[in-house]
């Protein structure tokens, strides 16, 4: 199996194996990504995030089917991220349970990923897995993540369109939404619209949008729509697809797509540079020297700013 060539030919085993190598930080993954890079940048990336159990996987399942049913069907890649247990380092990745309808369609590839280590690490492994699916020719890529933490914000920066999924009866949740997720939502979905309270959830989101008109997206001419869906029945999904397409068209026509891509590439590049510089630098400091410096800062013999400056001066 040639991981690179076979990935470009959309061989599912090669794609899957390459994503594993990325997750495991194996050296050949980096080489492969370098070769694949010119083949990326064609996929449209959609982030789907929201609180646990709001119906994200069910919705992604329906969205994938909808994209496959278009007059000009588009191939779909799905990356479903679930948290790693901080106690054991293991994880149960259960999003496929809701995606059984997608089995047997060669135009769909589903991969589950655990968050594993650091947040930055997750964002990068996910971003690299997206590149693999992109290079393999999947045209629309959905990335499902849980919650509203920094990881979601990082992943949202990777997506062109970010969908925030809510469900009725999560009053406190809406409060929490305000904190950071407002800024990343391009489209809101109130799923489980068959349940009581869907309309008041819609109203609550609209109200927050009104209070927030200075939010970055809206400032640039896009007010996030609020869609109601019943994902278990597929209701409201065609309208959601239309909103995704409308947002995509808006980004293209306004020139924001290029700007988002540039911001994303900048963040990614800075992160990598930061990581590599740090590694290079730290490798030149002996552990004893390092420990001693930390100890001196702890004892208040030197402040961290001065210590950093001094170390940098000594090492360069």
């Amino acid at each position: 199996m040639n991981l690179i060539q076979d990935t470009l030919n959309r061989d599912r085993r090669a794609i899957a194996r390459l994503i594993s190598h990325i997750e495991n930080g194996e050296p050949d993954a980096r080489e492969a990504l370098a070769v694949l890079y010119p083949h990326t940048g064609r996929a449209y990336i959609v982030g789907v995030t929201g609180a646990p159990g709001t119906g994200k996987s069910t919705l992604v399942n329906e969205l994938a089917k909808a994209y496959r049913r278009l007059d000009q069907p588009r191939t779909v890649g799905i990356i479903a991220v679930d948290p790693t247990s901080p106690f054991s380092g293991g994880a149960i990745l259960g999003d496929r349970i809701r995606m059984r309808d997608l089995a047997g369609d060669a135009g769909i590839f589903v991969r589950s990923m655990a968050t594993r280590g650091s947040l930055g690490g997750l964002a990068r492994a996910t971003a690299d897995a997206i590149k693999v699916l992109d290079a393999a020719g999947y045209e629309v890529i959905f990335v499902e993540t849980v919650g509203a933490g920094q990881a979601e914000v990082d992943i949202a920066k990777t997506a062109y369109t970010t969908i925030v999924v809510e469900a009725p009866g999560l009053g406190d949740e809406i409060q929490a939404l305000k904190a950071g997720i407002m800024e990343i939502a391009d489209i809101f979905v109130v799923n489980k619209a068959d349940r009581e309270g869907a309309d008041s959830t819609v109203a609550a989101i609209r109200m927050m949008l009104d209070l927030n008109h200075a939010s970055h997206v809206e400032g640039q001419g896009w007010r996030p729509p609020v869609c109601k869906t019943i994902a278990v029945r597929g209701d409201g999904v065609p309208a959601l697809v239309e909103e995704i397409e409308a947002h995509s068209a808006f980004l293209r026509e306004s020139g924001l797509l290029g700007q988002r891509e540039r911001e994303r590439v900048t963040t990614e590049f800075e992160y990598l540079l930061h990581e590599q510089l740090m590694r290079q630098f730290v490798s030149r400091v002996s552990p004893e020297q390092w420990d001693e410096l930390i100890e001196r800062i702890v004892r208040r013999e030197v402040d961290p700013y001065t210590a950093a400056e001094k170390l940098l001066r000594e090492m360069t």
Binding site: I15, G90, L93, R96, I97, R100, G104, V110, R111
Partner: peptide, 23 residues
């Protein structure tokens, strides 16, 4: 370990497809 849990009533075809995609 990382466990991919696929739920009830899986056909052999679904199982093998998931095994491949999830490596």
């Amino acid at each position: 370990m990382e466990v991919i849990y696929t739920g009830l009533r899986q056909t052999p075809e679904m199982i093998v497809e998931a095994a491949i995609q999830e490596d």
